[in-house]
């Protein structure tokens, strides 16, 4: 018995539904992976299931393309974005969680999170253009901060809310200042939350196409922009595209798996209480 329903029909239907959902989720990955190890001569043939696996596409991408550089760009941009977001977001989230008079601020963070990128991209583009920062990592980081900072802050408010207020009271009685209480006692307690928020922010930055597309060039191109290029230039390079897609997807899947249970508290947690 996999599903706990009383009658046999519901049990069968429930199990089948879950099975179908799993296949629908996994099949695209499976097919893309198959494509990535097909010899290039067999690429794009939906009827071919059995073949001699070839790592030619992987070799091409790893040793003979810009993808490693794109990965590095994406990684560097996401990392810096997250670090800045945590440095600015954590103290503010703590303040929002602890002090009176910030109820409005909580919602402005939420509002900032909801801000459509369409309205920010035009001025950001013009500004970066004037500062000659188009095709620079700094430019993309600036843009990514606009959506990572609010998310990270919003996440952290929820985590700080869960820490009993008595802890910093105790630290202050123990002889520390309010600020020391924050970074010596409270920050270590929410370390899992910081990690979860940071990883989630990393994934968001890593996944972005819109800003990166408009703000990067050959030098600073990120992985998503590079992937988009595989279908448009020089015809279709299916095998290589498959490899690039897997390279983009795998680290994100691993990272997000590690924070799943915190995510529920982070996204859901602050929302569920609304």
């Amino acid at each position: 018995m996999i599903v706990s329903f009383e009658n046999r029909l519901s049990r069968f239907l429930g199990t089948t539904a879950i099975f179908i959902a799993i296949i629908l989720v996994l099949f695209p990955f499976f097919w893309i992976f198959l494509e990535s190890i097909k010899p290039p001569s067999l690429g794009g043939r939906p009827d071919i299931w059995r073949f001699e696996p070839s790592w030619e596409n992987w070799g091409e991408i790893v040793f003979n393309s810009n993808v490693p550089l794109n990965i590095l760009n994406s990684f560097f941009i996401a990392l810096i974005t997250v670090v800045i977001s945590l440095i600015c977001g954590a103290p503010a989230a703590y303040a929002f969680s602890r002090f009176r008079g910030f109820q409005g601020a909580r919602y402005s963070i939420l509002a900032a999170e909801m801000m459509p990128p369409a309205i920010l991209i035009l001025p950001l583009f013009l500004l970066l253009y004037k500062l000659e920062l188009i095709d620079s990592r700094v430019g993309v980081i600036t843009a990514h901060l606009t959506f990572v900072v609010p998310v990270v802050t919003w996440f952290l408010i929820g985590f700080f809310d869960e820490v009993p207020k008595d802890l910093e009271d105790q630290a202050m009685i123990d002889g520390y200042t309010r600020f020391q209480a924050f970074y010596k006692v409270i920050l270590p307690v929410v370390r899992p939350g910081l990690a979860a928020a940071g990883i989630f922010g990393f994934v968001l930055s890593w996944n972005d196409l819109f800003y990166s597309l408009l703000l990067t060039g050959a030098e600073s191109r990120t992985l998503p922009v590079a992937i988009a290029g595989f279908w448009t230039f020089r015809g279709i390079e299916l095998g290589k595209m498959a490899v690039a897609i897997l390279i983009a997807v795998i680290p994100v899947l691993i990272l997000s798996y590690s924070i799943q249970k915190h995510l529920i508290r982070g996204i859901g947690g602050s929302g569920v209480k609304y």
Binding site: D166, Q170, V185, P188
Partner: peptide, 15 residues
Amino acid sequence: RDRDIAMVFQNYALY
């Protein structure tokens, strides 16, 4: 911190 007091909280507030 400057009052030279110690306090025990209801939920103990252990770090």
